[in-house]
Write a protein that binds this DNA or RNA. Structure first.
Length: 312
DNA sequence: AAGACGAAAGTGGTTGA
DNA sequence: TCAACAACTTTCGTCTT
């Protein structure tokens, strides 16, 4: 209890190790602690110091679930399970007469069966273990994890699971949740950390988004800028500049038909050159998952249309 | 030596008949 | 279901710093 308070205080008093600036902003959406002066990401997991909610069987789930609100979509019973005790005693500790005892046995049996005995529940336990593993690897904020879990639960309710790979389904839910939160990951990123092919994740995603009638907008280049800039350790100014370039490009209809990822990468490249925080095309291409060629093509188009002069 | 450039051929996904 | 198509990638030779 006290320990939590102390930790919070320490976090609050943090300084930027790069420039000593104390003006830090917490970005809970992205789960980052960011220096407002130089854009350095100081702590990438501020929103998620919670325990690992992994459960591999019903007993573990019940042990960990207890009664603590808020309810968790990432637990197969939303953390709301009730247990019938194993002792043959009543609430006062008296032993229960044998006549009622057989009744109690029967009650327990069916309780167990309805809890985790059916394949649906077992499937959810498996899926949420998977979900927890993957979202840890991606450092996803809790809100997105919960959203993914909710989507999976919905899919399960509509019987969309049977006959499909659990892993692909989980990845598709994560992909959808990220996009809904405005923090899209690329299919390649998801594919890289799992052993599901990009194509399969995409297909499964389309499947569930159609069946669940999800309304998800096409990602704009801006949604990628912040993440890529952080990965490249670029300053806040570059971020801002890149966003301006994108906004201007959208107005000039340069973005239509172009992949948003490559476009974001090109805008960042221009911004780095303009702000003299040079990164090579290769560096940017690597974090964005596109090729240098794409960056070149895009940035030529932008520079031409917006008449931005790039001189080294 | 490293980075930027651009041509040309290849690949995977979308679209419309 | 198939072919056409645009976006993007791969590869590679050349130029610039």
């Amino acid at each position: 209890m006290n320990k939590d308070k102390i930790e919070n205080k320490i976090e609050y008093r943090k300084k930027c190790p790069e420039c000593g600036n104390e003006n830090l902003s917490k970005d809970y959406e992205r789960a980052e602690l960011v220096c407002r002066k130089c854009g350095l990401v100081i702590d990438e997991e501020i929103a998620d110091h919670g325990p690992e909610w992994r459960a591999f069987n019903n007993e573990q789930v019940e042990k960990r679930a207890r009664a603590g609100p808020p309810t968790k979509y990432t637990l197969h019973d939303k953390g709301l399970s009730t247990t019938i005790g194993w002792k043959n005693r009543d609430a006062y500790g008296k032993s229960i007469p044998s006549k009622q005892r057989s009744q109690l046995y029967r009650l327990r049996k069916w309780h167990r069966r309805t809890m985790a005995g059916n394949s649906n529940q077992r499937n959810l336990i498996h899926a949420f273990a998977e979900l927890s593993k993957i979202s840890s690897q991606l450092n996803l904020p809790r809100s997105i994890r919960e959203q993914s879990g909710m989507l999976y639960r919905k899919a399960s309710k509509k019987n969309l699971i049977r006959g499909r790979s659990v892993e692909a389904l989980v990845l598709a839910c994560i992909y959808a949740a990220c996009r809904m939160a405005g923090l899209p990951r690329t299919l390649d990123e998801l594919s890289d950390i799992s052993n599901v092919k990009r194509k399969d994740i995409g297909r499964t995603y389309r499947f569930i988004s159609k069946k669940l009638k999800l309304k998800i907008n096409v990602p704009t280049p801006q949604t990628f800028v912040s993440r890529f800039c952080n990965a490249l350790k670029l300053s806040y100014d570059v971020k801002k500049k890149a966003n301006e370039i994108i906004k201007e490009s959208i107005r000039n209809e340069l973005t239509s038909g172009r992949g948003p990822v490559g476009f974001a990468a090109a805008a960042i490249y221009i911004a780095t050159v303009l702000n003299k925080e040079k990164r090579t095309q290769r560096q940017i291409a690597d974090v964005a998952g596109v090729t240098e060629v794409t960056i070149r093509n895009r940035y030529k188009e932008i520079a031409k249309k917006l008449s931005i002069n790039i001189q080294p």
